[in-house]
């Protein structure tokens, strides 16, 4: 049986919250939101700069690889509308495909994706800072 012990006559004075406590709580939370947003902005900005740097190197490497593999020549032949291409379209298509530097292309796409993602997050966090502050 639960002990029916109560302090119903325990008359403690009512505690009033001090002025500004509610605003203080919200101010602390806003402060923390801005701090976190600033930290994320810094991290994403660094990521963006690194991916820009890496991206430019990968782009140059991709362009060189495409040039060296003969991709440009096969592509211009395909787009020329020459009757030779129409006759040997199958062989030329395979050659075009083989000349694509897939690894470098994949790296380029990954770096591009990272760049877009970091840029979007940087912008989101900057907007958050502006909105809260």
């Amino acid at each position: 049986m639960e002990n029916p012990v109560t302090l119903s006559n325990l008359r403690l004075p009512k505690i009033e919250t001090p002025t500004g406590l509610l605003e203080g709580v919200f101010a602390r939370i806003r402060q923390e939101q801005v701090r976190l947003a600033r930290m994320r902005t810094t991290l994403y900005s660094v990521g963006m700069i690194l991916s820009l740097g890496t991206g430019s190197l990968v782009t140059v490497s991709l362009a060189r690889s495409l040039r060296a593999s003969g991709f440009y020549e096969y592509a211009s032949l395909a787009l020329s509308g020459d009757s030779l291409f129409l006759t040997y379209w199958r062989e030329l298509s395979f050659s075009l495909l083989e000349s694509v530097p897939f690894i470098t292309l994949l790296m380029f796409l990954v770096v591009l994706l990272v760049l877009v993602w970091t840029a979007a997050n940087t912008l989101t966090n900057v907007r958050k800072i502006v909105r809260i502050a």
Binding site: N3, P4, V5, T6, L7, S8, N9, L10
Partner: peptide, 8 residues
């Protein structure tokens, strides 16, 4: 052991 409801 029960305690009286009004302890004080």
């Amino acid at each position: 052991l029960p305690l009286p409801e009004e302890l004080f």
